[in-house]
Design a protein around this nucleic acid. Sequence first.
RNA 1: GCUCAUAUAGCUCAGGCGGUAGAGCACUUCCUUGGUAAGGAAGAGGUCACUGGUUCGAUUCCAGUUAUGAGCACCA
Length: 637
Amino acid sequence: MPQITLPDGSNRQFDNPVSVMDIANDIGPGLARATLAGKVNGNLVDAAFVIEQDAAVAIVTGRDEEALELLRHDAAHVMAQAVQELYPGTQVTIGPAIEDGFYYDFAREEAFTPEDLVEIEKRMREIVKRDLPIVREVMDRATAMRTFGDLGETYKVEIIDDIIPEGEEVSIYRQGEWFDVCRGPHLPSTGKLGDGFKVMKVAGAYWRGDSNNAMLQRIYGTAWPDKKQLKAYLHRLEEAEKRDHRKLGRQLELFHLHEDAPGSVFWHPKGWTLFNLLINYMRKRQEDAGYIEVNTPDVMDRSLWETSGHWENYREHMFSTQTEDERVFALKPMNCPGSVLMFAQGLKSYRDLPLRMAEFGKVHRYEPSGALHGLLRVRHFTQDDAHIYCTEAQMEQECIDVIELILDIYRDFGFDDVVIKFSDRPENRIGSDEIWDKLEGALINALDSMGQAYKMFPGEGAFYGPKLEFVLRDAIGRDWQCGTLQVDMKQVDMNLPERFDISYVAEDGNRHRPVMLHRALFGSLERFFGILVEHYEGKFPVWLAPVQVVVMNITDKQAPYVEKVEKMLKNQGIRTISDLRNEKVGFKIREHTLQRVPYLLVVGDREVEEERIAVRSLGGEDLGSLAIDEFVDLVKQ
RNA sequence: GCUCAUAUAGCUCAGGCGGUAGAGCACUUCCUUGGUAAGGAAGAGGUCACUGGUUCGAUUCCAGUUAUGAGCACCA
């Protein structure tokens, strides 16, 4: 005799065990039709789930967040059914709901073609139309393994064997002839999927995410409660593509890439101007924060990399050279060893600590070809790197200062909610747990004492130490690590202070090993640049715009005055160009607007006469006629 | 690195079931001197990514290489 408590606090009494659907029916037939699933005591369950005891129940309909995930998971099942109907012999593996959609990984000799995807989507719509009831069944483990084994579904057998503990039952979801191992829950029938889905693309993916395993074919789809939301999503994707930094980089003449230098950037004048603005900005912020700036060699002897451990661990990702005399050098993949040599030069006292040593270091890494991605993943990039040498007692405060600095800097670029990832000790690591406790503690204490939220990524730290990552998102929702903070301390293998045997003289007159913090704020200047382009859609704020002002004439008569204005503005440090081409003013305005120049100055006879300029903003707003110095104030404010 | 796809003018893209290619924009010259998102005309511009194979003949078909794109793996 279960008593059901609904979200509004009301109670309903039933004489016999009831399903979620029964309850919905009891409330009203309209609700029953809309019912997709239920929530019993907070757990998401099928609509057919039977409740035997008193419980808090909520009916889940298309309006609820949870329904969307079910919908997407269902879409994956329907797609798998469609694929197996169309291409017998294809094995199913796994197919979860993901952000914005779903995917399913298939094992099949032949590759799926774009035409196949069209057919698959067609068949999916058919299956939806069939409105097959989705029914949960249970099998004991052995039967399940035999059933799937008989079907030749070796991957499924492996999943059951691996995931389901011995003696436990396996839940199976069936829709028509087709069924799959699944934890559930699911929608009541395939018809509930509606028409808000679309098969998007096919790509390779390793079985169980391990590159030693076979490569499967992953088909991605997107699914939404209705067609309208699907359209809105596809529209968002289109809009995002317009922000792509690779596209804008070409259109705005910022940079280009070339086949002969994969993963390295050719910076054009405007891009390089912006790049240098970023460096100048960072230089100022670091100087204010008590950093000194140095520069270390790009090419250093192999023995240095052997000492640092990079040769052993990352050799295949390093660019190396052999000279006539057979000496082997490597292009630096990191700045740390150079920094350590800098620290080791001369005697350091505790009075020098904390020593915050920054470097705009050009590093080269031979990244796997498939990893390269515009400016966001390159082989040659510039780090705004710094190493802070300090005592153990100073460590935590230094961490706090770094985190505050990063967040403050990101705010200057309009990134207000930065995701902080905290990656702690991985399974394969070196160093004692005691040291790991200390290292992780330093970072966590710093975050906690600031009241700063962060996301835990258990086991994702580097093998030699935990790390903090500051993550920014690109136009189409991919996350990229930008800033980082890592602690490097005694007895851990990568430990550079130990490997290079550096020390400082403490108050007691003895030599002590410093703690070393590795940190980068932008991270990679190239990557940050790319993210910025997408973030602003190329419409940089005035202080970052490579060209801040274009002065243009209406007829040749005003040319001398235009040149005079250009000179005056340049003397004020304003990045100005003039456009004296024999073109109509509308044409020039269009061009420079497309180039996202913040201010356009138009000069005709009136302006020459009055010694003024007509000012137009990037948004198309007419700011009226201003005197030169008035305009200078406007730009500089 | 792996799977799939793509590579034609500076850019965006057509095209050809094998007979060395075309548009728009950009570029050059001329006309036009025009007040806030495209004035007009003419011209120039291509080893059809690279290497090899098949063929009388390859930009087109085949193979390999390189680069790029999507995803996976990787990211000190």
